[in-house]
Simulated scan of single mutants.
Amino acid sequence: MLEEKLTEAIVEELKRQAANRPQLLKVERADDAKDTEELIVNGQIDLAALVMVIAGSVAGGP
């Protein structure tokens, strides 16, 4: 359960970053399937924002 929540939080944050900066980041899931464990990421990631999302997810945040 925790792993699924963390995976979802990470993927959603990376997609949010890609939507805000499409020229710098591209994120895809293999066949766009939610149950796959593979993610294709190409570009620059705002690591501080990603860490905050992960910490919030672990702490029970939104």
Rank of each mutant, 00 (worst) to 15 (best):
M1N: 14
M1A: 09
M1E: 12
M1P: 11
M1Y: 11
M1R: 15
M1L: 13
L2G: 11
E3H: 14
E3N: 12
E4D: 14
E4P: 07
E4K: 12
K5L: 11
K5S: 14
K5H: 13
K5V: 11
L6A: 07
L6F: 12
T7R: 06
T7A: 13
T7F: 12
E8S: 10
E8D: 15
A9V: 15
A9F: 08
A9M: 03
A9E: 07
I10H: 04
I10R: 01
V11N: 06
V11P: 02
V11T: 04
E12K: 09
E12G: 01
E12F: 05
E13G: 09
E13C: 06
L14E: 09
L14D: 09
L14K: 02
L14I: 09
K15N: 13
K15H: 10
K15V: 05
K15G: 07
R16E: 07
R16Y: 13
A18Q: 08
A18V: 06
A19K: 04
A19E: 04
N20Q: 14
N20K: 14
R21Q: 03
R21I: 03
P22E: 01
P22Q: 08
Q23P: 00
L24P: 00
L24K: 01
L25M: 08
L25N: 00
L25Q: 03
K26P: 07
K26Q: 14
V27I: 02
V27K: 03
V27W: 04
E28T: 07
E28C: 11
A30Q: 09
A30M: 12
A30R: 07
A30D: 05
A30Y: 10
D31E: 08
D31T: 04
D32M: 11
D32P: 06
D32Y: 15
A33T: 06
A33I: 14
K34L: 15
K34P: 05
D35K: 07
T36F: 12
T36Y: 06
E37A: 08
E37W: 11
E38H: 11
L39C: 10
I40G: 12
I40V: 12
I40D: 12
V41Y: 00
N42M: 09
G43F: 00
G43K: 02
G43Y: 01
Q44A: 06
Q44P: 03
Q44D: 05
I45T: 01
D46R: 03
L47T: 13
L47M: 15
L47K: 09
A49W: 00
A49G: 00
L50R: 01
V51L: 15
M52N: 14
M52H: 10
M52L: 15
M52F: 10
V53K: 01
V53A: 05
I54Q: 01
I54F: 09
I54S: 00
A55E: 04
A55W: 07
A55F: 13
A55S: 10
G56Q: 02
G56L: 04
S57A: 15
S57F: 09
S57Q: 05
S57P: 10
V58G: 03
A59S: 14
G60Y: 07
G60D: 04
G61A: 11
G61T: 07
G61N: 05
